[in-house]
Each structure stands twice: as structure tokens, then as C-alpha cells.
Amino acid sequence: MNIENAQVQMRKGILEFCIMHIISRGEVYASDMLDELTSAKIMVVEGTLYPLLTRLKNSGLLDYKWVESSSGPPRKYYILTDMGKQFLEEMQKTWIELSDSVHTIVLKTQDLGAKNEQQPTN
């Protein structure tokens, strides 16, 4: 199995959650989302982001508004709808449960590894 592919799949799994968190802070422009995701090392490209934003919009979780720009064409700023806010709250609960569960499993594995290292070999 290719580790890079596994890493990409893990990131894709949390991308929607991260995007909705970014938007939950207030109106946000897509390129600002890309910058934040890249800074957080959740690599994403426009070809991934825009279809996801469209899907979230079509699901009623996001909306957008056009804002005139003094330096070019109008910009589309995304916001969460009330339904999107509720959806994000549920996703947050799931994330906490999942994160705690994974952490528990990883700790047990690390503890077992530490015990095995301490045992003398014959």
C-alpha cells in the first residue's frame, strides 16, 4: 500500500469538517480557505475545493454572497446556513468521539510497544 495515498484519503475524510469550521467563523473567500488549509498542511487544490463547496451549497449547508471588489471582479463569500451550523455541531460531536476512540487505540498500542521493549529477550 502507498503511504501517500493513505495520507491523502485521511485528509479527504476531514476536509469537509475543516472547511465548515473555517466558514463558521464568518464570511470567507475561497482562496482564503485554500490558504488556511495549506497552512494547516491539509493540502487541497481549487479542483477539490470548489466542487465540495458547490455540494455543500446544494445540500443547504452553505450560502454565499457576492461582494464588489475594488481590485477586480466581485468575490463570492461563503457563510454557513442555520442548517449548516446544526450540521457542524453534530460533526463536532462525532469528531470528538472519533478522536477520543482513535487516541485510546493508539495509546494502547504505544503502551504495549513500551512493555515489549522493557521485557528481556532470551
Rank of each mutant, 00 (worst) to 15 (best):
T38S: 12
T38I: 10
T38E: 13
T38M: 11
S39V: 00
S39L: 07
A40C: 13
A40L: 14
K41M: 02
K41H: 11
M43G: 12
M43S: 12
M43V: 10
V44G: 00
V44R: 00
V44T: 08
V44S: 02
V45F: 14
V45A: 06
E46V: 09
G47F: 08
G47A: 06
T48C: 07
T48A: 06
L49M: 15
Y50L: 09
Y50I: 04
Y50M: 06
P51F: 08
P51I: 06
P51T: 05
P51Y: 10
L52G: 01
L52Y: 02
L53S: 06
L53N: 06
R55D: 11
L56K: 12
L56G: 08
K57H: 09
K57V: 00
K57A: 03
N58L: 14
N58D: 15
S59R: 11
S59T: 02
S59I: 00
L61C: 02
L61M: 07
L61N: 07
L62G: 06
L62T: 07
L62V: 03
D63L: 14
Y64I: 00
Y64T: 01
Y64R: 00
K65A: 12
K65W: 12
W66G: 05
W66H: 15
V67M: 04
V67N: 01
V67T: 05
E68F: 13
S69K: 03
S69M: 04
S69N: 14
S69E: 09
S69G: 08
S69Y: 11
S69P: 05
S69F: 10
S69H: 11
S70N: 07
S70I: 07
S70A: 06
S70K: 11
S70L: 08
S70C: 01
S70M: 07
S71E: 12
S71F: 14
S71W: 14
G72E: 05
G72C: 04
P73Q: 10
R75A: 08
R75M: 10
K76L: 03
K76T: 03
K76M: 11
Y78I: 01
Y78W: 14
Y78M: 03
I79V: 13
L80G: 03
L80R: 05
T81M: 05
D82W: 05
M83R: 09
M83W: 02
M83L: 08
M83T: 06
M83C: 01
